[in-house]
Amino acid sequence: MVVLPKIPIGLWVEIIVEWAQDNLGVVFDLVTRMIEKTVTVIEQATLSVHPIVVVILVFALVWFLTNWKTALGTAFGLYLIYNMELWKASVETLSLVIVATVLALLMGVPLGILTTRSNLVHKITMPILDLMQTMPSFVYLIPAVLFFGLGQVPGLIATVVFAMPPCIRLTGLGIRQVPVELVEAATAFGSTEWQKLTKVQIPLALPTIMAGINQCIMLSLSMVVIAAMIGAGGLGSEVLAGISRLDIAKGFEGGLAIVIMAMILDRITQSYGEKRKIKQV
């Protein structure tokens, strides 16, 4: 019997990671500091006002964006969080989710557009996305910790990596779904590529792109507990603490707060997409 030599895939990845650590340390440091700063600013700003004031402000905002029912539900949910004494943890989590989502969108939307521009990019991107989505999310934690140490930033980076794929996919899908004849019409009137993109393709793909953004936020929230394992803090660590101490009450309350946040963010982003759809009909 021939014994095939073991292909050292794990070793290769290790080598790459080590090389990056040695040579790109400055970059990682910079990224870390920038992200930390942004998250802290959002956090501090929110915490500097009394929670009840925040609840009222969010109530008004949601009412303006959607309808009074959703706004009322939102206000009630937020009050419940405050009442459970999870306000600070929730704000931490929210800041993290917001920054992670924004980063994921900043990279995901242009990447999604890029996949529609070139077949090569499409062919390279799709298997990577498959990999990113099927890989257990814990695995992202390892390089994240190696590059960025423990704390909020590696948790956030892992979240971005995990949440970005649907954004790329749905952006690409939305743009590819725009009827060929419309793009042709735009071309026939002498549009530049940029004009075609901004005046026809993106506006028409917007409902689908919004669905991608929604997915992105939901996935970010689902990473909260996992990110807490490497010290990202927030509601995730409440849940983790609950688990490790077998404290059912604490664990459940933390989980409930996450669900409330997810519902609020979901309703806000979804209603925006729906509003546009109605306008188009």
Binding site: L182, A185, G190
Partner: peptide, 19 residues
């Protein structure tokens, strides 16, 4: 592009209006 903008226009079978 300039020719398409100024000189030649097109009308489509399926109208191709921007919805």
């Amino acid at each position: 592009r300039e020719i398409r903008q100024k000189k030649i226009s097109m009308v489509f079978q399926g109208f191709a209006l921007f919805p």
